[in-house]
Nucleic acid binder design. Sequence first.
DNA 1: CCTACATCCTCTAGCGACTAGAGGTGCAAG
DNA 2: CTTGCACCTCTAGTCGCTAGAGGATGTAGG
Lengths: 150, 150
Amino acid sequence: MKKITIGDASRQSGVKVPTIRYYEGIGLLAAPSRSEGNQRSYEPADISRLVFIRHARELGFEVEAIRTLLTLQDDPHQSCASADAIAKARLIEVEQRIRSLMALKVELEAMVEGCGHGRVDQCRVIEVLADHGQCAHPHHGLPVSSLSVS
Amino acid sequence: MKKITIGDASRQSGVKVPTIRYYEGIGLLAAPSRSEGNQRSYEPADISRLVFIRHARELGFEVEAIRTLLTLQDDPHQSCASADAIAKARLIEVEQRIRSLMALKVELEAMVEGCGHGRVDQCRVIEVLADHGQCAHPHHGLPVSSLSVS
DNA sequence: CCTACATCCTCTAGCGACTAGAGGTGCAAG
DNA sequence: CTTGCACCTCTAGTCGCTAGAGGATGTAGG
């Protein structure tokens, strides 16, 4: 048995070292055995689990959803209805988010296009922001709190 | 002059009461005058500023970008090149985010469709998550850290 | 065997943009 | 005068990490 250090686990899974420790802390990944010098030593199964987690995160699943998906994976005789429901919910979220972003895109394009590159008092960017009534769409349908840049 | 309470300011602007106080704390909104009983008393101009901020947040602008946009608005003789640049940068972000989400949508649809609604050991949702090689696309192009649900 | 140096360890604090709650005060209606 | 809501300040929590301090371990070369 060759021992997999946390650094190797990171390179093999694509999950950063501090993130692996973080996942252990929140109980997404079981605490691995330790070397004599107290260093974490992973098994190939842990790498698979990390890849699973990373992929799910890339797909935008929340940690709590991933926790559920992982317990499902651990017990393959269960019905996969929950996994299906989680994926479907995420799909709906993604579709809604795409629609919202499309509306934003239209509005941002109008702002940028309308800007005559002059002074601020003629700038459509500033103007549109100050007066929501000028929007192409009445609203974008998202609570302010739910916005993210990325 | 009728005094506008923070509650009225909230209702008129669509920004929640604690968020208004938060914006004051981070210097996005000037501290208003106070009533005898130490309660905030807003002017109509403050409401406009809050509407501006809310709209910009709805469009996904970061607080720091909004801070810049607000200083531009406060000095209308400046060139609006910065405002234009901020809006353009945001537009590019939105376009990239839409592309990423479209890729996710394709993958999630394949997962959901492939699920035979049986047991977990035949579930494509779990399977795809465990093995990134099964993805339609090699990757989604986003760092894990940049993902958000909304 | 000694020294570098990378990698590992734990722990705490910070990010952005709020949100929730505790514990207390102001104010307007009945 | 009391009820009850809206307001006040302050601290701490949310999510999913990320950064840094300060120290221990492991490995490769001399």
